[in-house]
Write a protein that binds this DNA or RNA. Structure first.
Lengths: 346, 346
DNA sequence: CTGAAAGCGCTAACAC
DNA sequence: GTGTTAGCGCTTTCAG
């Protein structure tokens, strides 16, 4: 490990090559106005000295850092990290660095310091990849006017004038329910995620509207609320069995809760899919090996991250090209049904 | 959104307060040598103007950025992201920013540009959080001497003189196997992860040594290799059933493959745990709701990330306090058994 | 206690 | 084509 101090600077290279720092600068920035021989010589020296321009110094003079702030939460769960995976991939493609911040909780009021922290590091834009829960987005959305860089949101209710990229959870709920109806089910219950989550509300609404459209009832009696965990899924399922004994199918808002449903149903000798059709949401890797294998709704969170990052960079580039006013537009990615054994009547 | 240009600088504050920039600098750095009144006045102005010192400029002058480079891979899986979750938590606690880089594959030879990329941004240290597979760590380990900042590795074979933080996978394999032996099982097979992974080899070795110690056979015939996926677990299990018909228990190197074992066993009317004891590894959230619920080995990846980051910062602080030579030491975190239904005879 | 000057590593704007 | 000057926003001397 070489001591921290000796960094090869543009000055060293210039001295060694017998030119001005400006010329070296021109070379590393591939400007045309350098004599071929000079360029050769300088490049050779750069190679030989292992010189690497300081992006920090560049950020300072160019008033642009090619660094993006990413705010996330819940990395201990698979969803957010898949999204992050997409974000890093796209950032790499576009040559941007990522400054990562994770909120300690989904709902925090320590937002202002966080924004300042990122701005102090001259980030070019912010990707807000935190699910919308209660009014946890209120402060950021409200402060948008005072944030001097573009902000793109992931997984949030569309709002006019704000760029948002999300999975179409409403459509997902609709597809899942329609699939069960197509199997001839008439009493489709729903186990929802926590209803302060926007995503949970959307999925529930999709279920409700699909039922309505089919002229079937979808009231509070036909729905129970969980908190995404298997344990909560178990409780919700038992509640539903009690309130809705004629239920012949259930759309569960995520695969973990659906797993609990399969587990309990099996214990109660309630046969899936014969006496109960089950559809989950997320398509986690394990769901194909549940017993029976789980029909579910696949959401491509990798793509979600990619699209959001692209959108953010688009806005940044637009600004740097002088177009201060790009239309903000929301993007909704469509989920897709993954049909397996748990829902299909033999 | 405020236009990109107008940033409040220390100069503006100084002007507004009628002092020099030095004085403002002293105030924001909480130096003692400022008159109380001056301090008051300056602080008021700072508040009022919403001034935030540029960490970029600071990094330049202080030759220290309070930013750490984190190199990860496989964020689409839950393990690496749980580790990252621990990393972000500890970084937040210690006041460090995180520059995140994800390798496109576990084994890449595009390492040098990546290191240069991070060094160009003046990171104070690097956390190498990529699992050791084949010789994918060779280049980094070999280049350590030419990397001017401390590097700490996560999940890698301990090497003298290099700081490494890992879960004790060998112990995990040992515990799992011993648990099965304590249940009276005598023919414990093993489904390993891909054996070019260091973790997979360690778990297998733990199984092997536990069997040896008990005077039981643990040869190639008693082991099959998977690739962590459920599908590969299915194939490996079938192979094992064929080669090792007297098998009465199996230690599976991760929960996803163990899920496939439960699935297939159920299909073959092979009763778990009566005719087959099963133990997994990882303790994923779903495992408690498998059917039967899965006994497994819990590894605390969050803590892993926390410890590694702490270790990295320790080394950085040591250097800045002038102690260039801190002893590099490895840290092994112990996993623990989570006993559930799949392994315990009634 | 406070300020002036120099410099961190680089580039924009202008000279020649 | 190439060099000079100034400045990005801050801190480190060193005066006073």
């Amino acid at each position: 490990m070489i001591p921290h101090n000796r960094r090869v600077t543009i000055k060293h290279v210039a001295q060694e090559a017998g030119v001005s720092t400006q010329t070296v600068s021109r070379v590393i920035n591939e400007r045309p106005d350098v004599a071929p021989e000079t360029r050769q010589r300088v490049m050779a020296i750069i190679q030989q000295m292992g010189y690497q321009p300081s992006e920090l110094a560049r950020s300072l003079t160019q008033r642009r850092s090619y660094t993006l702030g990413v705010v996330t939460a819940g990395l201990q769960y698979i969803g957010p990290s898949r999204t992050l995976n997409g974000i890093t991939t796209k950032a790499e493609e576009l040559g941007y660095a990522l400054l990562l911040k994770e909120l300690p909780h989904y709902t925090t009021n320590e937002i202002r310091p966080l924004i300042k922290f990122m701005l102090a590091r001259h980030i070019d834009g912010i990707l807000w990849a935190v699910p919308e829960i209660g009014d946890n987005h209120a402060w950021v959305v409200g402060s948008l006017a005072s944030i001097p860089v573009p902000v793109v949101f992931i997984t949030m209710q569309a709002r006019p004038g704000i760029p948002v990229v999300s999975i179409d959870n409403y459509l997902g709920g609709m597809l899942a329910t329609q699939h069960l109806l197509e199997q001839g089910r008439r009493h489709v219950g729903h186990i929802a995620g926590p209803l302060d989550w926007w995503e949970a509300r959307q999925r529930k609404q999709g279920w409700q509207d699909a039922m309505m459209k089919a002229g079937l009832a979808a009231d509070d009696r036909h729905c129970a609320e969980g908190n995404w965990s298997s344990a909560s899924g178990e409780a919700a399922f038992k509640e539903l069995l009690e309130n809705y004994p004629e239920m012949d199918a259930v759309f569960v808002a995520n695969d973990q809760m659906a797993l609990a449903v399969l587990h309990i149903a099996s214990r109660l000798q309630k046969h899936v899919p014969q006496s109960l059709g089950v559809v989950g949401f997320d398509n986690i890797a394990e769901s194909a090996y549940f017993w029976p294998s789980l029909t579910t709704v696949n959401q491509n969170q990798h793509e979600l991250g990619r699209h959001a990052l692209q959108e953010l960079v688009n806005r940044i580039e637009a600004i740097h090209k002088g177009k201060e006013t790009t239309e903000a537009q929301s993007l909704l990615l469509s989920p897709e049904m993954i049909v397996r054994e748990s829902s299909v009547l033999p």
